[in-house]
Simulated scan of single mutants.
Amino acid sequence: MASAAFEAIVEDFEFLEDWEDRYRYVIEQGRAMAPLDDALKVPATKVDGCASQVWLHPRIESGVFSFEGDSDAMIVRGLIAVLRALFNGLPVAEVARVDARSEMARLGLNDHLSSQRSNGLRAMIERIGSVAAEQA
């Protein structure tokens, strides 16, 4: 059920043998992402439960889900980019059907993120799911 963009990330990860290379890859994904406009960094878009500052700004246009995001931590910015690859462009009704934890586990992230980062990732996934559920 993962998007082609996410599948491309999974394929790239298969070629990266050690975690440090994968970590750098995730950070590069975040660097390539356009920054979130400061006007959108407001309490309503802030994600609670993350060790770093995280903002997600979802949009649903013509029934299609997408979101922008940002963080003050480079690895978290990269995780946002990976989540965007997983969710952006899906019909809003399909967002809730994505098993994001399992999809992210395909990248081996669960074994290498600190517990705080894992909690933050879970909080971002929950926010995405709740926004999509409200609109579905």
Rank of each mutant, 00 (worst) to 15 (best):
S62E: 15
Q53G: 12
I80V: 13
N88Y: 03
D70Y: 04
I75F: 15
V54R: 03
F87E: 05
Q53L: 14
S71Y: 11
L86Q: 09
L56Q: 07
P91H: 12
R106Y: 02
V64R: 13
A105P: 00
I80G: 03
C50A: 15
P43C: 06
V47F: 01
R101I: 06
G63E: 12
S52G: 08
W55G: 03
A85W: 02
S115Q: 13
D111V: 00
S102H: 08
S52Y: 07
F87A: 03
V95T: 08
G78Y: 06
H112Y: 14
G78D: 07
E68G: 09
S62I: 00
G108I: 07
A44T: 13
D99L: 06
S102V: 05
E68R: 13
R59Y: 04
F65V: 10
R97C: 05
R59C: 10
N110D: 15
R101K: 13
V47T: 12
D111C: 00
D48Y: 07
S52E: 09
V54T: 06
V76T: 15
D72S: 11
T45V: 00
L121K: 07
D48E: 15
N88F: 09
L107A: 10
S66P: 03
A51P: 11
K46E: 15
G78K: 06
D72Y: 03
L109E: 03
A85I: 01
G89M: 03
S115C: 00
A93S: 13
V54H: 08
A44K: 14
I80T: 07
R77G: 12
P91T: 03
D111I: 00
G108A: 10
S102Q: 14
V64T: 15
D99R: 05
D99A: 12
R122G: 06
S66V: 10
V95P: 08
R106Q: 11
L107H: 04
G108N: 07
P91S: 02
Q116K: 09
R106I: 01
D70C: 11
G69I: 01
G120V: 11
I80L: 12
S114D: 10
A81Y: 01
H57Q: 12
M74A: 15
E68N: 12
V98E: 04
R117P: 11
V47C: 10
Q116V: 12
A96Q: 13
G63I: 07
V47N: 05
P43Y: 08
L86N: 07
P58Y: 12
R117F: 06
K46M: 13
F65Q: 02
A85P: 04
L107K: 03
L83A: 04
S71H: 08
S52T: 13
